[in-house]
Amino acid sequence: MFLNTVLLAAALANPAPADFAQVGDLSGRYKTFGTNFDGSVYRGEVLITEVSKTSCKIAWVTGRTSATGICMRVENAFSATYQMNDGTSGLVIYRIADNGTLAGVWTVAGRDGMGTEVLTPVK
């Protein structure tokens, strides 16, 4: 009984990677709206491309700034690491809404602060 309890606790603490096909593929184009660390607003486009059952590529274009990275989904959480065209790297974490919108927060390595970002699917 003790061993079953330990195994159940471990499984709940470490969920298995989600298969994009099982939870809804997020591949596609998105409009992005966000705020920078200083509160200024940006807009642009994002492309998410599934590359395996558990990972994807992501690319942002916002004005003269671009970034690319890798991403993954676990249940209603979606995260990505990215590198901007100037070499800056960062992390973004989104919550996936029932309508397919992704709302999250992002940061840049070595800097204090957070920005916000919402991705809305382009239909």
Rank of each mutant, 00 (worst) to 15 (best):
W106R: 02
Y94G: 01
T35P: 00
A77C: 02
G28M: 05
M84T: 11
T5K: 14
C71E: 02
V122L: 14
W60C: 00
K123P: 03
K123Y: 01
S89H: 07
F33G: 01
K53A: 13
R95K: 15
A10E: 10
G63Q: 02
R64F: 01
F2E: 13
A10S: 09
G39L: 13
Q83H: 02
S55G: 03
L8I: 10
S79L: 03
N85A: 07
T62G: 07
Y82N: 02
V118F: 03
K57V: 03
K57W: 03
G24I: 11
I93S: 06
G39P: 00
V122N: 02
T54G: 06
A10R: 12
V61S: 06
E75F: 08
R95H: 14
G115A: 07
Y42I: 05
N14A: 11
T81V: 03
L102D: 02
I93A: 04
T88M: 11
K57G: 02
A10F: 09
S27F: 05
I48P: 01
V6P: 02
V122R: 13
S27N: 10
C71H: 04
L8E: 11
D38G: 09
R95E: 11
W60H: 07
G24H: 05
A109W: 09
F78Y: 15
A80D: 01
L102V: 12
N99D: 15
R29N: 10
D25M: 03
Y30K: 06
T5L: 07
R64L: 04
L119N: 00
M1E: 08
V51K: 06
R73Q: 13
C71Y: 04
L47N: 07
V61Y: 00
